[in-house]
Design a protein around this nucleic acid. Sequence first.
DNA 1: TTTTGGTTACACAGACCTGTGTAATTAGGC
DNA 2: GCCTAATTACACAGGTCTGTGTAACCAAAA
Lengths: 189, 189
Amino acid sequence: MAPPPAPQTMKERILATADKLFYLQGIRAIGVDTIAAEIGISKRTLYNHFPSKDALIAAYLERRFVAPRPSDKPPAEQILATFDSLERRFAAKDFRGCPFVNAVAELGPTDRAVKKIAIAFKESRRVWFRDRLNELGVADAEALATQLVLLVDGSIAQDLVRDDPAMARAAKEAAKVLLRNAGVDVGVR
Amino acid sequence: MAPPPAPQTMKERILATADKLFYLQGIRAIGVDTIAAEIGISKRTLYNHFPSKDALIAAYLERRFVAPRPSDKPPAEQILATFDSLERRFAAKDFRGCPFVNAVAELGPTDRAVKKIAIAFKESRRVWFRDRLNELGVADAEALATQLVLLVDGSIAQDLVRDDPAMARAAKEAAKVLLRNAGVDVGVR
DNA sequence: TTTTGGTTACACAGACCTGTGTAATTAGGC
DNA sequence: GCCTAATTACACAGGTCTGTGTAACCAAAA
């Protein structure tokens, strides 16, 4: 039924390893040598698949840019589930904040390409919230969606420095207040 | 009346320059040579004042750690004014996110010293909100204070990638809802 | 078998980094 | 004038980084 485990292409192996190292230790902190050594390939092979480290960085971020899969749960539940999933990710010891925000923070105002991807990602998340809110018939879905992404990114930043998964719960409680204030039913208070 | 412009000590000049460069371009992106050259001093002089770059980084962050000055305005106003001040900072072209979050993102899980300072800073901000909320007699000041810092850090992260000062206004509106929900009078809706 | 394409080992250029060593120079306090 | 302390110029060690050049190798396809 399931297709046989697709033999990972070399490119994918490189990307997966770059992802792990870049995300956990920082993009500037990891050299291409380190990535190649981790896989056990030569640096030459890596450069045969990516013309430069910058290209690898861009591919790393693009690979992180996955759309949330559609759900058939009620929109309000979907929204709140976001924060539960956040809490689970915070609890994992390999959580290190938002890769897009981190990349922008690290690579600075220099790197236009990185910033562009980060903006697209953030906007996609905001739009996802907005669409769910529209399904709920919320009046100013745009504004509320923005407020919800603030809670998401705020809890991520806080957890990054404090390592406290409770930040996700705090964000969820705040989100409930905002939703209720917009007329959304989020269960008994 | 005003004291004569205190002749900036060498140490302060170094710190001020390190601050500008570290903050705007990133800590890893700036070498000590660059800092010395920017001031027009020799690298040797810099190392006479700071034993290592790590020490300079720590001093940079500690210098950024300034307590908000006490105000005699009503607590609710003080809280909301936080977001106005945030909006002004976002509008400045030299805003580049929270230096503490950026440092943690950049220097990774490696640097304990940096993380420690960042945690202390974030906690001090939370406590400041909590104290204002207690003055207002809010029931669960701890929880609400946490939610407010989420909005602050969320808007900072969003502005970092999107360069959109409106994030501060969105955070302020959300804060108003949360405050009103806690029984605080924040003016007519 | 021969060809082809990806891979490896390895050296290397050129740049940048942190940190040190040293001797000459400057400037202020006495 | 003299002493002291900071500063300077400058070289350099030792490390890291990105990216390239090259010749050998291996496996599978033709």
